[in-house]
Design a protein around this nucleic acid. Structure first.
Length: 654
RNA sequence: GGCGAGGUAGCUCAGCUGGUUAGAGCGCAUGAUUCAUAAUCAUGAGGUCGGCGGUUCAAGCCCGCCUCUCGCUACCA
């Protein structure tokens, strides 16, 4: 929400209020591989899975006030048609590279087999149980087609070799264009976006496969492509187009008109797809506009830890909407004010509370309340005349409205939402200061004419505020406008000093924002604490035992106590240490992925358990002759399996 | 390991092509005030700008090395 939907919604509401013809398009990307895995796990179809979530997500967005013109999904027919057509166009234009290769096919399961799903005898060492991509015994890298006696791991049948064709989008071909378009013509893009694009382009782009041998996705729409679907990253961005089509017959205007500006609001993990891949697709197709900007944001953490839906480390929108009824704007405000625009940021409930109590309640809500309460007290809710006692200070204060509006516009136009929302709050600050400086509650006893002017101006500030806050706090803006008995105001009304005309009746004051008490926050913190505990418990639960093996199988393993003699980091790797171990039998080299947990110096001289008859395997060009046994705890921390007291190197472990 | 982004007051962040005493909001302290949801207004305290070295008359901004965080990437038990 923080990085993508809230900023996008603010921006779009702003443009709509300016009277621009704008659409906010979004949708669920439903062809991801995790979806098929989840379906398999639960024994249901992928469609069941996506049906379950799409509705919930869509409704949550709606209730939260993310004003999508359409929130669609990539499993609907329009999308299938659109994506197919898009592919066909590129295909016919010769924008793809076709590569044919031999691949095993399981005739029983009716599908092509990924290398990992094929097992057989290794052609180089003759051992059984080698996988299609490599032999675990000798470590050689294999082509699946080289395996002797291959067997499908899915059905157990003997697979047949079939030619399979895949299509690749030659990103390298578009490199000169991308270089100019991004690196020269879009220097104004955010540093994080520009930097990552530059990095990709400078490293040289490779052709990227756009098809896969899977059964979940949009079928590849050319002859001889049975059982092939569009790779998810290819079809997903086309979803933006499909959704627009679904929404309006005039969809082409939004995608192809020269004057249309397209923007992608995304998270930083999606930069490459939206800045390099999708634009290349659009360019290749030829008739579409390219994005004008991609204001990608960084990530928002939660109470110091990365948000993770699988670990339930998250604030679920549908739960928030229930537990904080009618307080969408509080979360919108907090998220916008903390948007991770330049670096990852942290959401904390304490900050949420503080933003509400110290800013929304104290500054904004309070000012509005003061103005309206006083109006009712002095004039029974009737807007007074401007009065004749207008001073320089009054004029300056009114003029200040325009200055603030301009600043908000500048900030929004350059996608600086934190700055924009802060400026918006400054209008409420202006109001508070105006009241404090003019003190109408004192003057009412001595100078009623002057008080009319003061209240008139205070009300105009309030009315302006109700418009200015609308993109950010739409629910509260409507509430305030209802209180003021106003409606249909536009962005161009901002700065006007007669939004409420003399005699205009305003309604009774209601509080815009309610204080949030410590207990309420504590409930949320407790909930997260419970999640944390649950995760720890879950992590403590040991994995289920593997299948039984015979004693013979066990005795095949030759495990010894060895002593580490030397240790050094393998260059250009993060995890690997190259160890020299005295096994008692010999001194041998072992490559071990423990560099993140041990300094080479610290472990020299340590006794460890080592599997000495594991087939050698080349890792990073170094032949590893054995495996150091490690214990791994739930956090992934590694510890050595060591003898409880010093024993002779070469002692057997049984 | 390579690449990208970031490391500025207690917290969240500004700081444009290097130039006088480094800014804002919140928090904190003091004072004023009472129309208002004990809200508001004023004033103030608080920073060796991640570390070291360099270029320059001048560096938070430029260069080098190091370090920490996040992301992308790599033949990653």
């Amino acid at each position: 929400l923080a990085g993508v939907y809230v900023p996008a919604d603010i921006y779009v509401r702003y443009l709509r209020m300016k009277g621009e013809d704008v659409l906010l398009i979004g949708g669920s990307d439903e062809h991801g591989v995790p979806i098929t895995l989840k379906a398999k796990n639960e024994g249901v179809t992928p469609q069941d899975i996506v049906d379950r979530y799409h509705g919930i997500i869509k409704k949550s967005f709606e209730d939260f006030g993310i004003s999508f013109d359409i929130y669609s999904r990539t499993t609907n027919k329009t999308h299938y048609d659109t994506a197919s057509e898009f592919f066909k166009t590129l295909y016919e234009k010769g924008e793809f590279i076709e590569k044919e290769s031999d691949q095993y096919y399981d005739e029983e399961a009716n599908q092509f087999l990924a290398d990992r799903y094929i097992t057989g005898t290794c052609p180089s060492c003759g051992s059984e149980g080698a996988y299609g991509d490599q032999c675990e015994s000798c470590g050689s890298s294999l082509n699946a087609t080289d395996l002797i006696n291959p067997v499908s791991m899915i059905s157990g049948s003997v697979p047949v070799i079939k030619k399979t064709k895949h299509w690749y989008l030659p990103l390298d071909k578009h490199e000169p264009f991308l270089r100019k378009w991004i690196l020269e013509d879009h220097k104004e893009w955010k540093a994080n976006v520009y930097g990552q694009c530059k990095s990709w382009i400078d490293q040289g782009l490779q052709p990227r496969a756009v098809s896969r041998d899977l059964d979940w996705g949009v079928p590849v729409p050319v002859e001889g492509a049975d059982g092939k679907v569009l790779y998810v990253w290819f079809d997903a961005p086309i979803g933006y187009i499909s959704a627009t089509k679904e929404l309006t017959p005039e969809w082409e205007k939004y995608w192809k008109d020269k004057d249309t500006r397209m923007l992608h609001f995304i998270g930083k993990d999606n930069i490459v797809f939206h800045c390099i891949v999708f634009p290349s697709m659009l360019k290749a197709e030829g008739t579409y506009n390219l994005p004008e900007n991609v204001p990608a944001n960084e990530f928002l953490n939660l109470e110091g830890d990365k948000i993770s839906t699988s670990r339930n480390w998250a604030v679920w929108l549908h739960e928030y909407l229930e537990e904080f009824k009618d307080q969408q704007d509080v979360l919108r405000y907090t998220l916008a004010a903390n948007a991770p625009e330049t670096k990852d940021n942290d959401f904390t409930w304490k900050d949420f509370q503080a933003r509400n109590n110290n800013e929304l309640v104290a500054i904004l809500g309070n000012f509005v309340n003061r103005a309206i309460v006083l109006t009712h007290k002095y004039y029974n809710g009737k807007t007074p005349e401007m009065g004749t006692a207008v001073e320089e200070f009054d004029k300056n204060s009114l003029a200040e409205i325009d200055v603030i509006v301009k600043k908000v516009e500048t900030s929004l136009d350059s996608f600086r939402f934190r700055e924009a929302i802060k400026e918006m709050m400054n209008l409420a600050r202006l109001g508070n200061k105006y009241l404090a400086d003019t003190e109408p509650w004192k003057l009412i006893k001595t100078d009623e004419e002057r008080v009319k002017t003061i209240m008139y101006i205070s009300l105009q500030i309030t009315a302006n505020l109700s418009v200015l806050m609308e993109p950010f706090l739409p629910f509260s803006a409507i509430k305030l406008q209802t209180m003021l008995n106003l409606s249909g105001l536009k962005w161009t009304d901002l700065g006007k000093t007669d939004l409420l005309t003399p005699g205009h009746i305003i309604n009774k004051p209601e509080l815009l924002f309610a204080k949030i008490e410590d207990e309420t926050i504590q409930v949320q913190l407790d909930k997260l604490e419970a999640t944390k505990s649950a995760n720890i418990v879950a992590a403590k639960t040991a994995a289920p035992a593997k299948e039984n093996i015979s004693f013979d199988d066990f005795t095949k393993m030759d495990i010894r106590i060895g002593t580490i003699l030397e240790a050094e980091k393998v260059a250009k790797t993060k995890k690997l240490l190259k160890l020299t171990v005295d096994t008692g039998i010999d001194k041998r080299t072992v490559v071990s992925g423990i560099a993140e947990f041990f300094n080479p110096d610290e472990i020299i001289g340590k006794q460890v358990s080592i599997l000495v008859n594991l087939a050698p395997r080349k890792i990073r060009g170094i032949e590893s002759q054995g495996m150091i046994l490690m214990g791994e705890d739930a956090n992934g921390d590694l510890v050595f399996i060591q003898p409880s007291k010093q024993v002779k190197a070469g002692s057997e472990v049984r």
